[in-house]
Each structure stands twice: as structure tokens, then as C-alpha cells.
Design a protein around this nucleic acid. Structure first.
Lengths: 161, 161
DNA sequence: TTTTTAGTTCGGTAATTTCTGAACCAAAAA
DNA sequence: TTTTTGGTTCAGAAATTACCGAACTAAAAA
């Protein structure tokens, strides 16, 4: 028994956000579920509410939710004495997913260093540009946490005002 | 007549980098071409050299290169009195593509603001987290150019040493 | 003018992805 | 013990994507 409803406006926004996510490499249905969890009035939805609101099958809901959980774009919690899972957007924990996604910089650095190391020394200009790119990425990987820390500092000050 | 060759090591690195790109949402062949242009001894390759080195058809080469040009992951130049185009990785101009990619922050901010604006006021905690995420993204969009500037400053100093 | 070069475009096939419904399952409730 | 709930798993259909070869084209060279 679901009593969550979507307005026409919400439905349209979900589609547009879905396209946005799709353009960033997320499969259509996963994008729609992510958008739904951000647009919908309820901050948490059950498996069946998601299924109904998007009008999709159980299997589609199941596999999309599972990959969304693996990729940590969606989280869930349970409630005592309730077998259902309550799914929510990871935007509620954007701080954590920010610090996690941050690891990707190191992957880029690693593979680019490997590529640079095997390069011929006969192309100094090319190699210099590559080295510069790697250095900059390393620089960012240092500055990013600092920026983040400063922001949280600034923000707790504001909240205490 | 091509005389560029790939070592076995280079071939393997291209495949691994290709997978890396694929995991970040780039189609296989486009990923391979991008990797080839980074791994290969020659900093620039012609249409036909790419075709031969990867062992693919003209049509595949053509369409992959065109989308790579549209998405600005690959650049090309021409030479006087030569009809061929010489393709190169955009890593040679990573500064420009960095500043361009930077625009994506504003897209995120825009769509998230829209989503927040249509939300019910009945979920203050959720809305607060979203607002915080948006504020942080805005903060980054200010800090990022500053960081970049400081890095270039620091770097030109080093180069003059 | 004819030929060559450096690609583009088109039609089709093969592989992959995205869904569906139906059958299944394990834990809790009745 | 049987039934209900909250899903998972599987086989297959439908849509999309990733390739190919063959025919084509426009500009330059011969």
C-alpha cells in the first residue's frame, strides 16, 4: 500500500535529471531511481514504492538497486521490526562519497605514471606535458582535502553563530 | 606507408588503459584510441596509422575519431601542403580541457538547485543536506580556479630557477 | 582529364544492455 | 504448519551500441 504520489512537475524533473545522469555514464533506470530519491517528497522509499512510482518490474528494480548500492550512489537503512529496506540518495551523505570518490585521483596518477615511464625519451615536449599533468593531479590530491577541511571549519563557525 | 610500431608492452598497456577509460564511461574503441595516442612513441598519428595500429576499419576509425573530437578528448592539427590530419591526445592541452570540464560544476549546481526548490518544506533535514551539498559545490567552483592559478604561479617560479 | 588520397556515409550484423514476467526463496507472521 | 512479505534469480524479448565492408565524395596530384 503506497500513498506517495508524484506531481507532473516532479515526473518531468526526474526524467530531466535522469538524462543528466545518463550523460555522465549512469544507465537510464539507475539515473531515474537516483533522481526519484532526490525529487520525491519522501526522503526514503521502499523497494515496492520505487517499483510502483517508476512503473517498472521487480527484477529491474532489484538489479538497478543492487548496482546502485554497490556503486554507493544509494544507501539504505532498516527499521526495527520491519523487514523492508528504506532506500535513500547518497546525497544525504555527500561528505563520505566525496572523500571516497577522491580516491580516483590516485588511480589516474598511477596509470598515467605507468604510461609516462614506458615512453620514449625522444619526445621531450610530450613527456613534459604529461609530467606536468601528473604533477598537477598530485597537487590537487593534496589541496582537495585541505579545501574540504577549511570548508567544514568555516561551516561549523557559521552554524554556531 | 606506416612505420610506427607497437611493442607487446605498449599493446598491453593500451588495453589496460582502454579498460580504465571504459570504466569511466568511454566506449571501448574511443578508449583505445585515446590510450594509443598517449602510449605510442609518436605524439601525433594520422587516421590511417590509427586504423592500422589498432587493426580496425575505416568507418570505425572515422566515427570514433569524430566523437572524440566533439567531446574534445582528442585534438588534431594539419601541416602545410599535407591533406592528412594529425591527431593527438588532449593531454597535450590538459590546462584547457581542465578549465572547460570545470563548467560541469555549474550544471550540477543548476539542476540540484532546481530539485531543491521544488522540494516539500516538510523534510528540513534532507533539504539542509542538499543545500549544504550545493553550497560546497559552489565553494569548490570558487576555490578551484584559485588553486589552479596558484599552481601555475608556483610552477613558473620553478621553471625560472 | 584521370587518378589518388583522406576520409565520410550507409546498410547490415554481432554483441551488449536493458528490460520483462515467471518461478523461486528465506524469514516472519498467522 | 501454512501463508505472506520482500525480495532474488533466470530465460528470453527488445532496444541499443559497436563494429564491419562497400560504395561514395571532394580536393589535390598527376
Amino acid at each position: 500500500m503506497t500513498n506517495v504520489q508524484l506531481t507532473q512537475e516532479q515526473r518531468e524533473l526526474i526524467e530531466r535529471m535522469g538524462v543528466f545522469y545518463e550523460q555522465h555514464g549512469i544507465p537510464p533506470m539507475e539515473g531515474r531511481i537516483m533522481s526519484l530519491l532526490i525529487v520525491c517528497d519522501e526522503p526514503e522509499l521502499t523497494f515496492d514504492q520505487i517499483r510502483e512510482l517508476l512503473g517498472i518490474s521487480k527484477s529491474t528494480t532489484s538489479s538497478a538497486l543492487n548496482t546502485l548500492l554497490i556503486t554507493k550512489r544509494v544507501i539504505y537503512r532498516t527499521k526495527p521490526g520491519d523487514r523492508k529496506r528504506y532506500f535513500a540518495s547518497n546525497i544525504l551523505q555527500w561528505q563520505e562519497s566525496f572523500t571516497e570518490n577522491f580516491q580516483k585521483f590516485f588511480e589516474v596518477i598511477k596509470i598515467m605514471k605507468e604510461a609516462l615511464n614506458q615512453r620514449t625519451p625522444k619526445t621531450p615536449e610530450f613527456n613534459r606535458q604529461m609530467a606536468e599533468f601528473i604533477e598537477f593531479t598530485e597537487y590537487i590530491s593534496v589541496e582537495f582535502p585541505r579545501i574540504y577541511l577549511e570548508w567544514t571549519k568555516r561551516n561549523t563557525q557559521n552554524n554556531n553563530k
